[in-house]
């Protein structure tokens, strides 16, 4: 059976971010109207801008096969690997006006090229390699079973393109925060049965820099061109902290644990009780807002909470299904 493939063309207006840190005071956008074919990927458009319109236009590219991670940019705010993203899909998603920008505008050096120093520093900070005593003269291969390989959950597919890192709002605000790519890397090695690192899991559980400052927005899951789902790895790193007994007694950890306590007591959450358990004496800082909420009928006292019906079932399940300790 022969398959017919029809190539279609359409007009697209590209608004392209331009900036040269050596001579421009501010970035600006250049407009290019182009006929785009359904066969092209975003990288083809970058090439055509450079080859047909302006030779000074700069971007990173190398493998053209979604492996090297060099060509990650943003199209209409969406992180993407330019060599992998079909133009057709972009037009389907955003229409015929496309904004081409670097992954991080504030880190732009020249056009699409950014300074990724923070990305690599954070990558380095999570001990991104196996820490193991390797026999220098092994008698056989150091094999791991398919089941053990599965626990990596494809974290080893990361190509360090930076798409998730520069889509993460916490990275933008909190300069200490390691970010989703570094966490995916940390998980890749901490989940490896051959690994003996003691510091890595502790490092990624530190306040400010660690997983507890993740805002849970799922931007990283959406951005990753290799579908690694970095936030899933962040969740697993949280869980490993409890499994390894290194979870600290701090506000973030108590906040997670507090849900179980609340559910065991009421089925539903006791919102005030959760904040009190999480914060401890530091709850005083919330009192001004809490008072205003109270005057507006937005705070239910512990004795006013309507507990879940059939609470005994929930309590029984909390007892029988719990798998973690703190």
């Amino acid at each position: 059976m022969s398959t017919q493939h029809k190539i279609t063309t359409q007009k697209v207006n590209f608004k392209v971010f331009r900036f040269n840190a050596d001579k421009d005071y501010l970035p600006y956008y250049e407009n290019y109207d182009m006929e785009v074919t359904s066969e092209e990927v975003v990288l083809d458009i970058l090439n055509r801008i450079k080859w047909d319109h302006d030779g000074s236009f700069s971007y990173r590219r190398s493998c053209r096969h979604g492996i090297c991670g060099a060509c990650a940019i943003k199209v209409n705010g969406r992180s993407t690997l330019a060599c992998k993203e079909s133009m057709n899909d972009m037009v389907d998603l955003f229409g015929s006006e496309l904004v081409i920008e670097p992954l991080s505008k504030k880190r732009a050096v020249k056009d699409m090229i950014i300074d990724k120093a923070d990305f690599w520093e954070k990558h380095d900070a999570v001990t991104p390699y196996l820490v193991a005593d390797i026999d220098e003269n092994p008698e056989s291969e150091n094999l791991i079973s398919p089941e053990d390989a599965d626990t990596l959950d494809e974290a080893d597919l990361c190509i360090q393109c930076g798409a998730c890192h520069y889509a993460c709002p916490a990275v933008e605000i909190n300069e200490d925060f390691f970010g989703p790519a570094a966490f995916a890397s940390a998980y890749r090695f901490s989940a490896d049965i051959r690994d003996n690192s003691v510091s890595r899991l502790k490092d990624v559980n530190e306040e400010k820099q660690g997983v507890w400052d993740c805002v849970k927005c799922f931007e990283c899951a959406e951005a990753c061109p290799k579908e690694i789902n970095p936030i899933g790895k962040i969740t697993k790193l949280h869980q490993m902290a409890f499994q390894e007994g290194i979870a600290k007694n701090n506000v973030a950890v108590r906040h997670a644990v507090g849900f179980k306590k609340s559910i065991a007591k009421n089925g539903v959450l006791d919102e005030g009780g959760l904040v009190l358990y999480s914060e401890g004496p530091a709850i005083v800082k919330h009192l001004p807002v809490a008072f205003r909420m109270f005057t507006k009928g937005k705070i239910v006292p512990p004795w006013g909470i309507t507990k879940s019906q059939n609470l005994d079932e929930i309590q029984k399940l909390v007892k029988s299904s719990s798998t973690a300790k703190f």
């Binding site: 849970k216 969740t235 019906q309 973690a324």
Partner: peptide
């Protein structure tokens, strides 16, 4: 659904994934 419990609000699974699954499945 007056019998429903809290869903864990995207925090409980950080502590105990299986418990979170059981409660939401309920």
């Amino acid at each position: 659904l007056t019998e429903a419990s809290c869903c864990g609000a995207s925090h409980l699974q950080d502590y105990d994934d299986f418990l979170s699954l059981v409660l939401n499945a309920r």
